[in-house]
């Protein structure tokens, strides 16, 4: 705080931070609490402690197959978005392309358009051309949504590098592929890693597109959870949610290690 901050403002800040943190984290804590409750019904605060609901999730075909579907799609999306977005960011960072401003605006545009509009468009187009929805349709859709995040983190990382590295490498005899492999790739790596984990997280947690592009047998975890919530769920839905929260925390730690959380906040 700037010196000379009045004492009441300091107290207010502390109380405000505590309340806001509680508000932001409350739903997550509640879900975690419900997941270990002995009660047959969803209730909070939890009664007793049991890991029964986790067992139930792990032995449930519906949840396990949804988890596999989510995982495969998320991995595909991670690889596709990292490759496509990283390559585009390298080219855009060089600023030598005509209309590179327009191109980067285009690559970032899925951020601005509400997902529901895109989802309905994707459903209509895919049905018109290919007929029934397939996992590929969902993977492509998620890649489009995740792409801007990869492009943005990679561009932010590249913007911090010395713009003369590639030229210096040329004067030292590095050819086109050598420059990409030995100069550009090592520079963009943290952005690519962080962007890739973002892409995984986005695809794994995404609900809107997955709800539009679903058919029997193609259910991702968020869709499965949504379906349970529409009826009267038992605490196993909390157990699976808690596992997903845990995965998110792991991803956050990895992203912090590769790029730094402070950096993400400003991307």
């Amino acid at each position: 705080m700037v010196s000379g901050t009045p004492i009441w403002a300091r107290y207010f800040a502390v109380i405000f931070i505590v309340c806001t943190a509680l508000f932001l984290l409350a739903p997550l804590f509640v879900v975690m609490g419900v997941s270990v409750s002995e009660s047959q019904f969803i209730s909070f605060p939890p009664q007793g402690f049991t890991l029964h609901w986790y067992e139930k999730v792990l032995s449930s075909d519906a949840y396990v197959s949804a988890a596999w579907t989510s995982l495969w799609i998320a991995l595909t999306v991670t690889i596709a978005a990292s490759l496509i977005g990283g390559a585009a960011a390298i080219a855009l960072n060089r600023r030598s392309l005509p209309a590179s401003g327009l191109m980067s605006a285009a690559l970032l545009s899925p951020l601005v358009l509400p997902t529901i509009i895109y989802a309905i468009g994707m459903l209509l187009l895919w049905s018109a051309i290919f007929g029934p929805i397939s996992p590929l349709a969902l993977a492509i859709g998620h890649t489009v949504i995740a792409l801007p995040y990869v492009v943005r983190t990679c561009l932010a990382v590249l913007a911090d590098t010395d713009p003369f590295l590639e030229e210096a490498a040329r004067t030292m005899g590095a050819g086109r592929l050598q420059r990409l492999a030995f100069v550009v790739l090592p520079q963009i790596k943290p952005g690519l890693l962080a962007g890739g984990f973002f892409a995984f997280n986005i695809s794994f947690d995404e609900a809107v597109l997955s709800l539009f592009l679903r058919k029997p047998g193609l259910t991702t975890l968020p869709v499965q959870i949504y379906g349970q919530l529409e009826f009267s769920p038992d605490p196993s839905v909390a157990a699976v949610s808690t596992m997903m929260i845990g995965l998110t925390i792991v991803l956050l730690i990895i992203i912090d290690r590769t790029l730094g959380l402070g950096k993400i906040a400003s991307v």
């Binding site: 984290l25 997280n201 991803l251």
Partner: peptide, 27 residues
């Protein structure tokens, strides 16, 4: 402190909307 607060802001952001809504249904 800022890092912790950033974490508190980003963790819900990166958690599925479905799960957060579930928490509110319970509350």
């Amino acid at each position: 402190l800022r890092l912790w607060l950033t974490l508190i802001v980003i963790l819900p952001l990166m958690t599925s909307v479905v799960i957060r809504t579930f928490g509110w249904i319970v509350l």
